[in-house]
Amino acid sequence: MRGSKLSLNHKRSWLGVAFITPWLLGFVFMFAAPLIQSVKFSFSKLNVDPSGFTLEWVGWSNFNNALFVDATFNRVLTESVRDMVLNVPMILFFSLFSATLLNQKFRGRVLARAIFFLPVILASNAISAAEASGLINLVGDATAVNELGQSGSQYNVMSMVMILSDIGLPLSFVDYIVDAILRIYEIITSSGVQILIFLAALQSVPGAMYEVAKIEGATAYESFWKITFPLVSPLILTNVIYTIIDSFTGSKVTQMIFTTAFTTQNFGLSAAMSWIYTLIISIVLIIVGYFLSKRVHYN
């Protein structure tokens, strides 16, 4: 038999290949092939006909159109990248903060945890789309006006801006904080998974370390920065990457690429747009990854 002539190691590696075969097939046919096709599309004009499609080589003109001719793409792209860059630190800060909070012992912790992870389940584009259209329905009638009035009286942002700038904080930083407060709902609802990851990391920190620190006279503040933070820091990179990936589906650029492809039927342009987007995201990821991995403490 030929099978028995194979060495054990050889057999093992073939078995390994067998285990990953489903993924490998998927990767080749559902990922690599479309990826290469997408590159091709971005350099061509694509005409769909009933039996398939034909390609017409147009060079860089799709990229040219996306960046310099299309009226809104530049704006939408910079806006959503800016939103992403602004959101990431806020989400990180909030999720680490909540995870530390939920890791402490207090009555009702189980309930609090259950509520904090609820957004993982409820974060749905379908729901936000339906809610938005519900609001559009409402605008211009009594309750909407009432609600707008209420939200105006609820909290006066200006007073806070005054206080913060009186303290002497730079105006751009004040802007950032005020923006964070106004978007608190968005930030809270998009940090469910991140809280979960941080919490799991916090639970794996050995309790003996805190005891030692306490005996040595460290305050809670010190033990957070000297023990907790270094030990969860590898997860910061994970969370940054997750937050960025998570922002793809809801982002305006994705919507724009979608409508360009399926409403305007300009497949080439949409492929070019998506490649520009991918490129910018990867630059952001590389920069973030480079800076974080230099500072992260690995044990």
Partner: peptide, 8 residues
Amino acid sequence: PTSTLMVP
């Protein structure tokens, strides 16, 4: 991003 693979 998923949008890259969408059309193909």
